Simulated assay, not measured.
Amino acid sequence: MPATAAEARTPPSPVAGLLGACHPLPTAAVTLFAAALAAAVGRALPGAALCVAAVAAGQLSVGWCNDRADLRRDLATGRIDKPLVAGTVTPSAVTAAALGALLLCVPLSLAGGPLAGAVHLTGVAAAWAYNLRLKSTAASWLPYALAFGLLPAYVTLGLPGAPWPPPWLTAAAALLGAGAHFANVLPDIEDDLATGVAGLPQRLGLRRSAALAGLLVLGSTAALVVGPPGPVSPYGWALLAVTTAPALLAGGRLGGRFPFHATLAVAGADVALLLAELR
Results as ranks from 00 to 15, higher is better:
Leu212Met: 11
Pro152Gly: 06
Leu278Asn: 07
Leu224Gly: 02
Leu50Gln: 11
Ser92Arg: 09
Asp70Arg: 00
Thr27Ser: 05
Ala269Gln: 05
Leu193Ile: 14
Gly158Pro: 11
Arg207Pro: 10
Ala35Ser: 08
Ala8Glu: 15
Glu277Ile: 02
Pro83Arg: 02
Leu249Cys: 08
Leu218Pro: 15
Ala118Arg: 01
Leu84Tyr: 07
Thr244Pro: 15
Leu239Pro: 08
Leu224Tyr: 03
Ala34Tyr: 06
Pro26Met: 05
Trp164Gln: 00
Tyr235Asn: 12
Thr244Met: 15
Arg9Ile: 00
Glu7Lys: 13
Leu110Ile: 01
Pro12Phe: 00
Leu25Asn: 09
Ser209Lys: 04
Gly177Thr: 09
Cys22Gln: 12
Phe148Asp: 06
Val217Met: 14
Leu99Ser: 11
Pro152Ile: 04
Thr4Asp: 08
Gln59Ile: 04
Arg43Phe: 05
Pro229Lys: 01
Leu186Tyr: 02
Leu102Lys: 09
Gly161Glu: 07
Trp128Ala: 01
Ser140Ala: 12
Ser209Leu: 02
Cys22Arg: 01
Ala147Ser: 14
Val94Gln: 10
Leu254Met: 10
Ala180Glu: 14
Thr195Met: 10
Ala49Lys: 01
Ser136Trp: 00
Gln202Cys: 12
Ala178Pro: 13
Ala153Asn: 14
Thr88Ala: 14
Leu132Arg: 14
Leu37Phe: 12
Leu275Val: 15
Ala247Gly: 10
Arg79Leu: 04
Leu275Phe: 06
Leu45Asn: 04
Ala35Thr: 06
Ser136Val: 03
Ala118Ile: 09
Val62Asn: 07
Gly219Cys: 06
Pro114Asn: 04
Leu60Val: 04
Ala250Gln: 10
Pro152Gln: 02
Gly117Ser: 08
Ala49Glu: 05
Ala8Tyr: 00
Ala222Phe: 04
Leu159Tyr: 08
Gly219Leu: 01
Leu176Ala: 13
Val119Trp: 13
Ala173Phe: 10
Val242Thr: 09
Pro143His: 15
Gly256Ser: 06
Ala126Asn: 09
Gly17Val: 04
Met1Arg: 13
Ala57Tyr: 01
Pro2Trp: 08
Ala96Tyr: 02
Ala162Pro: 14
Thr263Gln: 12
Leu142Lys: 06
Gly17Asp: 11
Ala172Trp: 07
